[in-house]
Design a protein around this nucleic acid. Structure first.
Lengths: 144, 144
DNA sequence: GGCAAAAAAGTTTAATCAATGTCTTTTATG
DNA sequence: CATAAAAGACATTGATTAAACTTTTTTGCC
């Protein structure tokens, strides 16, 4: 399965970085991996509560925080939701998302050009980018 | 002053479009215009309440909704805040923002290239963009 | 012009969704 | 075993929307 491969990969990355992939973090990771679409923190929370009824918002947010820092998941700012990243091996890439407003599908694209275009625009204003958010909303090819 | 010019312009635009620039909307517009930085809805609310103590969250959100629809203000998704747009005469341009995390200054840039780069990336995936969000965080040229 | 009907805007109250703070307890690791 | 990181518990703040109702504005018609 692809999920278990992803999980292995994540575990390896954590090992290498000397950070802890704890049970809570793993559970949240798996929950996210099961969704092909983006998921809200509170949806995730209620799913987590079926496993661990004591889970609270902070539980989820802490786990998401960690997973985000490691680059395993991305937060979608425009809809307050989270998606699994499938290319976290190549570290700290710029994140560019296509979000279908009809079916909810999220596609992550990787355009060096786009990244460069943004950086050059910023340079022109003497601005130094540390983090960028690119989210396009619309209709994916599968939706009518 | 620049603010009153902006106000006039907004009034004209509304007149042309046959939509109503009511007192509440004008007040919120002016509050936003006074800020050079982005402002949160609740900050705006408490400012509005000094004029109109009866104002509630819905008051602000409805006004912001309207101002957003007309293109007078932009919402910054990554920080849940709002900024005045100074080029609302040329209608419905793509919004690209540089947000300084140190001083809070927000600069709106206008790059046709960037817009095209995003669109062509989307096209490649058969994706049809209706709305795009581009927000870069970092350090502006004035900050050390 | 004056007025009824319809449309738009605003008010109120409440609920929901999203995120963080603080303090205590547990757990891993040197 | 000491220490630091993580998780738990509890509470609160912040952000946004919903639903029901009232007021204001517009507009066509007498």
């Amino acid at each position: 399965m692809e999920i278990s491969a992803l999980l292995e990969q994540a575990k390896n990355v954590c090992q290498q970085r000397g950070v802890r992939f704890t049970p809570v973090r793993e559970q949240v990771f798996l929950l996210l991996a099961k969704h092909s679409n983006a998921v809200g923190a509170y949806d995730l929370l209620s799913e987590l509560q079926t496993i661990d009824p004591a889970a609270k918002p902070a539980t989820i947010y802490r786990a998401l925080d960690f997973l985000g820092q490691q680059g395993f998941v991305h937060k979608i700012e425009s809809i307050n939701a989270f998606v699994m990243c499938h290319h976290f091996s190549d570290c700290s890439h710029p994140v560019q998302l296509l979000i279908c407003d009809q079916c909810g599908h999220v596609e992550e694209i990787q355009s060096q050009n786009l990244d460069l275009a943004i950086r050059s625009m910023a340079d022109a204003s003497g601005f130094n980018i540390s983090h960028q958010i690119v989210e396009a909303h619309g209709k994916c090819q599968r939706c009518p």
